[in-house]
Amino acid sequence: MKQYLIETDHLTKQYGEQKSVSDLSIHVKEGRIYGLLGRNGAGKTTTMKMLLGLTKPTSGQIRIFGKSVSGNEKKILPRIGSLIEAPGFYPNLTGTENLGIFAALRGIPDRNAIRDALDLVGLPYKDKKLFSQYSLGMKQRLAIALAVMHDPELLILDEPVNGLDPIGIAEVRSFIQALCRERGKTILISSHILSEISLLADDIGIIDHGVLLEEESLAELEQKSSRHIRFFVSDTAQAGRILELRFHEKRFTIQDDHRLIVHNLNLPTGQIVKAFVENGLEVCEAHICEESLEDYFRRVTGGEGIA
């Protein structure tokens, strides 16, 4: 059985009659960036809070580093860095002074930990600028410095680019990527910004109204949203066999019993339809689709789309 750094099994959080998260099963691979994508209120923050033990699941299981979180919190949680809500930094202190307080509270012995964390996010060490004078981008970078100060193996970041201007977003994006590519960190990041997740993540989970709609690599999602030939037929299993035997084509995806997508646009659509009909299949739809990633997300989330 394949091991994942984070694995949830039918994770559910219910408040009264309302399910904030419903039967969520996600799989985060080591050394990769996993983007949890969904509109505001989709259940992303609640999911992350359950992973970190900040709220208790109604039902379901959480495994991190191959172990159940329940009963192993003291072993697992110190290996995680997180940014869920804005930390309570003191406005009248510098970034270095603020991190110094947190380092003392957490018992971090490494004297270079603060300098290294600030270097990592591009903030100066022992600068005289007070936190109250920081831009939004600098404040967000300091929050991530706090998350990585103890050199965790796993980072859980909730909307880390929220509220930033384009320059700040690009800065945060670059060092999140560096944390993964150069430092080997595994990162779970949430966002409602489709364009940003598509630039950052290796794998994506789409969550809507607490339900996981899709989970796959970014490359697989981009393939789904690229140009393709879409068929709606009476029996996709038989249609797949015809494609392989008659047209020697294996680049197709069977979505369900009736929907099939062919990724090779060079195939003769008319001849395929004819072969399907000759073999007793009913063909209700056959056309070339050109769908953007945004169009795809709008379709799977029920029409509203994601920013």
Rank of each mutant, 00 (worst) to 15 (best):
Lys2Ala: 14
Gln3Leu: 08
Tyr4Gly: 10
Leu5Gln: 11
Leu5Asp: 10
Glu7Cys: 01
Asp9Ile: 13
Gln14Glu: 14
Gln18His: 10
Lys19Asp: 11
Lys19Gln: 12
Ser20Cys: 11
Asp23Ala: 05
Ser25Thr: 15
Ser25Trp: 02
Val28Pro: 07
Lys29Gln: 14
Lys29Arg: 15
Gly31Phe: 08
Gly35Glu: 06
Ala42Ser: 12
Ala42Ile: 01
Gly43Phe: 01
Met48Phe: 10
Leu52Asp: 11
Lys56Glu: 14
Ser59His: 04
Arg63Ile: 02
Phe65Arg: 07
Ser68Glu: 13
Gly71Tyr: 05
Lys75Ser: 12
Ile76Lys: 09
Pro78Thr: 09
Ile80Ala: 01
Leu83Arg: 03
Ala86Val: 01
Leu93Gly: 04
Thr94Ser: 15
Thr96Leu: 06
Asn98Glu: 07
Leu99Pro: 12
Gly100Gln: 09
Phe102Lys: 01
Ala104Arg: 14
Leu105Asn: 02
Arg106Lys: 15
Pro109Gln: 08
Asp110Trp: 00
Asp110Phe: 05
Asn112Trp: 02
Ile114Val: 10
Asp116Ala: 14
Ala117Lys: 07
Ala117Gln: 03
Leu118Arg: 03
Leu118Pro: 08
Asp119Phe: 04
Val121Ala: 04
Gly122Thr: 04
Pro124Thr: 08
Lys128Ser: 08
Lys128Pro: 07
Tyr134Gly: 12
Lys139Thr: 00
Ile144Glu: 11
Ile144Ala: 10
Met149Val: 05
Met149Tyr: 08
His150Val: 00
Asp151Tyr: 07
Asp151Asn: 15
Glu153Asn: 06
Gly163Tyr: 07
Leu164His: 02
Pro166Leu: 00
Ile167Thr: 14
Gly184Ser: 07
Lys185Phe: 07
Thr186Ala: 09
Ile187Asn: 00
Leu194Asp: 10
Ser195Val: 09
Leu199His: 07
Leu200Tyr: 06
Ala201Val: 04
Asp203Ile: 03
Gly205Phe: 01
Asp208Ala: 05
Val211Asn: 12
Leu212Cys: 13
Leu213Trp: 00
Leu218Phe: 05
Leu218Ala: 14
Glu220Ile: 06
Glu222Ala: 09
His228Ser: 13
Ser234Val: 03
Thr236Ile: 01
Thr236Pro: 05
Ala237Thr: 14
Gln238Val: 04
Gly240Phe: 12
Glu244Leu: 12
Leu245Asp: 15
Arg246Met: 10
Phe252His: 13
Ile254Thr: 13
Gln255Tyr: 05
His258Val: 13
Val262Arg: 00
Asn264Asp: 15
Pro268Gly: 01
Pro268Cys: 09
Thr269Val: 15
Thr269His: 01
Glu282Met: 10
Glu282Val: 11
Glu282Asn: 05
Val283Asn: 10
Cys284Arg: 11
His287Glu: 15
Ile288Lys: 12
Glu290Pro: 02
Tyr296Arg: 10
Arg298Pro: 03
